[in-house]
Design a protein around this nucleic acid. Sequence first.
DNA 1: TTGTAGGCGTTATCAG
DNA 2: CTGATAACGCCTACAA
Lengths: 350, 350
Amino acid sequence: MNKPNTPDAAAAPALPKAPVTLQMVAELAGVSPSTVSRILNGTAVVSGAKRQAVLEATKTLGFVPNPLARGLAGGKTFSIGVVTQAIDSPFYGAALRGIEDELDPMGYSPLFMSAHWNPTAEARCLELLQARRVDGIVVLMPRLSDSALLHCAQSLPVVVTGRELRGDRLYSLNFDNFAGAFRATEHLLALGHRHIAFITGDEEHPDAAERHQGYRAALQAAGVPYDPRLVVPGMYHELSGLDAVNRLIAHGSPFTAIFAANDQMAAGAALGLYQHGLRVPDDVSLVGFDDLPNSVYSSPPLSTIHQPAYELGRLAAASVLQLIAGTQPTAQLPRPELLVRASSSVARTL
Amino acid sequence: MNKPNTPDAAAAPALPKAPVTLQMVAELAGVSPSTVSRILNGTAVVSGAKRQAVLEATKTLGFVPNPLARGLAGGKTFSIGVVTQAIDSPFYGAALRGIEDELDPMGYSPLFMSAHWNPTAEARCLELLQARRVDGIVVLMPRLSDSALLHCAQSLPVVVTGRELRGDRLYSLNFDNFAGAFRATEHLLALGHRHIAFITGDEEHPDAAERHQGYRAALQAAGVPYDPRLVVPGMYHELSGLDAVNRLIAHGSPFTAIFAANDQMAAGAALGLYQHGLRVPDDVSLVGFDDLPNSVYSSPPLSTIHQPAYELGRLAAASVLQLIAGTQPTAQLPRPELLVRASSSVARTL
DNA sequence: TTGTAGGCGTTATCAG
DNA sequence: CTGATAACGCCTACAA
């Protein structure tokens, strides 16, 4: 105001507004920094009028605590490391959202990293997260060994999914793939199908093997022989589902239904059938596994086993938080649920 | 070692291995902390033999610098804030992966946050990220005003997508939605279609309006009248595509093709047509927009306009890095590309 | 070139 | 209940 002739623009070109510090709040409120810290963190027995002053100063100054400083000084960073295998996975997307939704209201932030199904990369993620001093870690579908995970849990609370594993600061959330596959196969059997082809998942993954077992067990329970010629390997992606159908048809063993170990392969399989002029479900019934968000909008909508990905995320996040708080988590995933949609129907007579 | 009788388990129950500090490396190497810092950061003119000692000490101790301390002291956190609208978006997933892939080799880490298409939430994300002292920010499809974004760029390098906007520390990457929609419509026109229905996107989003314009312009260029009865509102999700088809059919205006403003609605539309016993493309040709990863596996595979989501992520990340380095980014998104697949074919005579 | 000292913004530990 | 005083782990002048 002293130099009316100075253009405003020149007076304050782009001052990146020096961040407000706790110190400044303390001065404005006329108290010590520690008091401010205590009030803002509820670390001390409530104080009298100073409290009001501090809160006001905080507001007028627009003070926002520096997480880095907090982490350095206090040890807690209020962030949770989340190791996912692929940030763009159609399946885990929902889980990530669940984690976000659970963490946010608790004042925690997720730190997402992708391990790309690579154990080495996964180990690196864990190291990076530890370096960042996260307060806990969630690993979705780890590829690392149990012992490596257990080791990691020695220094941090860890929650893993897709594996049965308990430890000191370690909790796991597992989905019953066997039961899910059993249920899916049973469904097809109940519709009168006796020649049910199965497209396996990438059997490097334990869940793929479990689904295979479930399929096999359901057949056995129904007294239907397990025919290896009707079992074709897939890799959990669409293209492998398409390939599988081509191989199945080329091979010539008759079948009236296909159970794919996941929805992505089911989509590929549907395309394969379409290309061969076979209609779903009129000629071949099709059942998937996972219930991807878009499976209900395929033509026809896909019958599948619902996996509670969003819930999985929420429960995993809630569990780390409990571990951090020193409570023993008890969360359990809901049981597999069969969703009967239009892709499966009564078997036509061969 | 003094008490051979003490069980090992009791001696070291679960000592969370006190983190190795730069200080410790310095001592082991027999130099000062600053020297270690300089060597590890390449901040000083290379030194002689001490360098070797430090590097070795770093290795044997397994030293990993504490990012929090680095950020606090040095100002740089080597992390980039990424604001996405939905962490589980089928479209943006690829972009996030692109960002990861670009940042990782440069030693930067992305910090993902979801704004859920909510301007208020978006503003909060930006604040949180600034509080975390990220070195730069990428906002995918911002919902905030230009000025708000520009304001944010005053204190940090910012890159936004889906908008034309330039500023001091601000760069933008935009996709030509108009041209894409024009191209898609043109394709249908070239196949002989004259009654092309259009399912709009959520016109709250600028891109939806641009796609609508592109559709309109292509019709006009071909001398085909724009028929409002063939334009039905959608919301960019599958269900709205399904609804749109139902309304289209209920209304009774004949059409031989549908152009949906995105692939998700195209999937919904395909289902609607299927439910009405209409075949794609025999009865109705269908074209989408975005080229979602699974669109190529729908039955039939969907003709669509390819959006380079992964590239978008890489370029956005590369651009912030350039901004941080003080270089002016020049990245440009590739032009829209039409992918002709099986869902579109020559118009049947009405 | 290399070491010393100070500070980044908070929290935690102690005295009062 | 509150205020000094140390850390937290690293970087960066400044001095040697």
